[in-house]
């Protein structure tokens, strides 16, 4: 005997007859009403719009960096665009499934959140031009403030994403949540890019870039409680 003989036997077993629907299901069906199903692209559009409005509000509230006009335009726009992509790409993968599927592309979303987290730390460490009114880091206290602002900016994308995906993820919820966090963290990075005038590589890399990783980790730890199917 070997698996080559037994497995076809198992494969050919008659299909079992399922039990009738449970009383609970029957009672649920008795009051069945039409429901609005998930529309991923619409949800993504709402998520992005809501988050950007919130992010703009934070920038206005904490003030735009005073050295903005002194910094190279290519850097301001290029890095700003990178933050925007880092914000939208993970959110897209976390909320929009491929055509014909229900579950989001959580594997790709997870990979993207790791890549984005590392990329922004490296980018900040390597490229950080300065102007006459730029500031330098004198103590670590400044870092805490930036981390706080960055994480506060990540709050809306993560919470709104979790609401949109609540009860929708039987598998891959942690990776999807990490992507929501990475997206939110990137919005936080964009806010800091426009707000913080500290130009030390360590600060820009580890704090501004680090916001992405911290937000992703926090989201991965907390959000599955809302998105897991129970």
């Amino acid at each position: 005997m070997s698996a080559d003989h037994e497995l076809p036997e198992l494969r050919d077993l008659p299909v079992p007859t399922p039990p009738p629907l449970s009383a609970l299901l029957e009672s649920e069906l008795a009051q069945l009403a039409p429901v609005a199903t998930r529309r991923p692209l619409r949800q993504l559009a709402i998520l992005v719009a809501l988050s950007l409005i919130y992010g703009t509000g934070i920038v206005v509230r904490v003030a735009i960096r005073p050295d903005l006009h002194e910094l190279p335009m290519y850097w301001l726009l290029g890095v700003g665009l990178a933050w925007l992509i880092g914000f939208v790409a993970p959110l897209y993968l976390a909320t929009v499934p491929r055509t014909g599927a229900i579950l989001p592309r959580w594997r790709l979303a997870g990979i993207t959140s790791v890549v984005v987290s590392v990329l922004f730390v490296c980018l900040g460490l390597l490229v950080h031009p300065e102007g006459p009114h730029s500031a330098h880091l004198s103590h670590f206290g400044r870092g805490y403030g930036c981390l706080e602002v960055g994480l506060a900016a990540a709050l809306v994308p993560v919470v709104a994403g979790a609401i949109f995906l609540r009860g929708a993820l039987p598998v891959g919820s942690r990776w999807t949540a990490a992507a929501l966090g990475a997206g939110g963290g990137s919005l936080g990075g964009l806010v800091l890019h426009l707000h913080c005038q500290v130009v030390d590589g360590l600060h820009v890399g580890l704090i501004h870039g680090g916001v992405v990783g911290v937000a992703a980790l926090l989201a991965a730890a907390v959000v599955p409680r809302a998105t897991d199917l129970r």
Binding site: P97, G100, I102, L165, L229
Partner: peptide, 14 residues
Amino acid sequence: LKVHRARTSYVRGA
């Protein structure tokens, strides 16, 4: 039962 409770997360056409 879970399918029933999560039916709002179904994406039409999937």
